[in-house]
Structure formats: structure tokens, C-alpha cells
Simulated assay, not measured.
Amino acid sequence: MKEEIIRIDSVSFQYPGAEKDAISDVSLSIKKGEWIALIGPNGSGKSTLSKTINGLLVPYKGEIYVKGMKLQEETVWDVRRAVGMVFQNPDNQFVGATVEDDVAFGLENNGIDREEMKVRVTEALEQVRMIDFLKKEPSRLSGGQKQRVAIAGVIALRPDIIIMDESTAMLDPLGRKEVVEVVRDIKDKYGLTVISITHDIDEASLADQIIVLEEGKVIYKDTPANIFSLGSTLIKMGLDLPFAEKLRLQLKDKGINVPNRYLTEEEMAEWISQSYLNK
């Protein structure tokens, strides 16, 4: 049984002047080492929920525990050391004149020894495959490269949890693929817990569990296979489906006897190949 790293108990948050809660009575348990994808329509509360986890937003009701610590004024900085956040626009996170300076910035603020800092900066940039850009100006990097540097700045701090708040939204397909691969490699190497807020359904399909939010409430939490098998239910919410699942549903609508379960692209290709060969 995996150890629980985040527990959210009946949490509600409302923005000043709003007529209703942004998140309402949310309860969740997240295990150490899991990759969790948060999906839902715009305004469903995904980013709000993520910002309550490290104390950027303070709920008016409920409790949050991170690594067993109850999130409150006395523990907020300890919690923030455990939770690293990577936001949508990496330009908003850059403060250094060079890639090296930028990754070192958070370490300096945390009083890390200079020699240790050099080691961590090098290791972090090697992990995101950006060590060759050590002396480059962040402004001269591509979108995917900037996001990888932003991730390096977070992992250099050695958090236990990384929250990616729409971190691939501004990238092209190749950039998204590169960033997701980097995060998965880091997760596997260090046993990190990853929470990915995303509209990219292919990115969500890589998670261990998907949490679906609607109007500030958690309505589903399950494996990608079980979530995507909801099909038309997700479409009615304004969400997308992986290509293979859309193809499966279209074939089914045409009366073709397709497997009655979620298939990945590889599984769908194999099923089509086998069906053709058996004719």
C-alpha cells in the first residue's frame, strides 16, 4: 500500500466578490509517487485546487495535509518546500540573466551553500537535457526549452511533489512531448508525485489516475482507461477523448463489433491489424 502524501478534507474556496465557490467540499487522497492528471472544463476549479495545496490560496473551509503536515500559517513554508509549481508561461518565472542564474535563484533564496548550489544546478539541467544551455539567456530559448529550464529550477529545490499548472498549454506538440518525457523521467528517478493540470488529453492519458472536476466538485477519480470509457459523458462536459477512443466509438456507431473497452492507440492499431488479417 502506497504512502499518502496529500490529503484534502472537505475543502471549499471562494474568490472575493464571487457568487459561488470555485471549489466546493473537495476531498481527495493522493499517494506518494503517483502521477495525477486534473481535467475539467474551463472554470471547473483545477488551478484553484492546485493553489490551495501549497498555500497560495487559503480555503475558508476544510483542511489540507502535505506529508502529514497540516497546512496552516505555521507550516506553509515547509509545505512550499515540499511542493514545487511550474506554471503555464515560463517567462513569468524567469529572474536570472542566464539559465544557470535562473536555476540557482531559488537555491539562493533558501540559503543553499554555494558548492552544493553548483552541484544541484548542474544535476537539474542535466536531468532536463539543458546543460548545454547553461550560459544562454532564457529569452533566447524556444518555448519547450524555457519550460524545461523552469522545471529545472523547481527540481533543483528537491521537492517531493511537482504541480504542473497547464505547463504544456503554450507549447507545440513536440515541445509538449519533450516536457512530459522530462517530467516522467524525473518522477521515475526520484519517486516524485506529479499533479498535472491539463487540457491535453494525450498528456492526461499517461497519468496513473485522472481526476475530473466540474463546477468546483470532483465528479470522477479513476484510471485513464475507466475515465475515457465514459466517452460521450466527457464530450457533453466539453472535454476531448484520445484519438483511439474516438475512433472506437465511431466504428461502434457504424455497427462494427469493436472491443467494449478503452484502447490505447497501440492497442487499437493492433486490433485493426488482427481484424484485417483474420478476414
Rank of each mutant, 00 (worst) to 15 (best):
V58A: 10
D208G: 03
F13W: 13
N109M: 08
D78M: 14
A244Q: 06
I219Y: 11
V194N: 07
S273E: 08
R114T: 15
D222W: 02
D91A: 15
S196I: 08
V218T: 10
V121S: 01
I161D: 08
E178W: 06
E116L: 12
I161H: 09
W271S: 08
H199Q: 11
S196L: 10
K146M: 05
A150C: 03
L239W: 00
N89Q: 04
I5V: 12
T193L: 02
S142V: 15
L263K: 12
M170G: 04
D172R: 12
D132P: 06
N278S: 15
D102H: 11
L277F: 11
L56M: 14
V128F: 01
L174N: 10
P41G: 07
D172K: 11
V258L: 04
A22H: 05
F94C: 00
K46T: 07
W35C: 00
Y276L: 14
Q72R: 15
L241K: 00
F87E: 02
D113Q: 09
P41Y: 10
N109H: 07
D21P: 01
F243L: 15
G153S: 02
L71C: 12
R80H: 14
Y262R: 04
I210W: 01
R158F: 04
V76A: 12
L71P: 07
R261S: 14
I53T: 07
G96H: 08
L125Q: 05
G33S: 09
K67N: 12
A156H: 01
T198F: 00
T168F: 02
A152G: 06
S12I: 03
K189T: 15
G231D: 12
E74S: 13
E270M: 10
M170T: 00
M85F: 14
I186C: 10
L157K: 00
E73T: 12
G175E: 06
D253P: 03
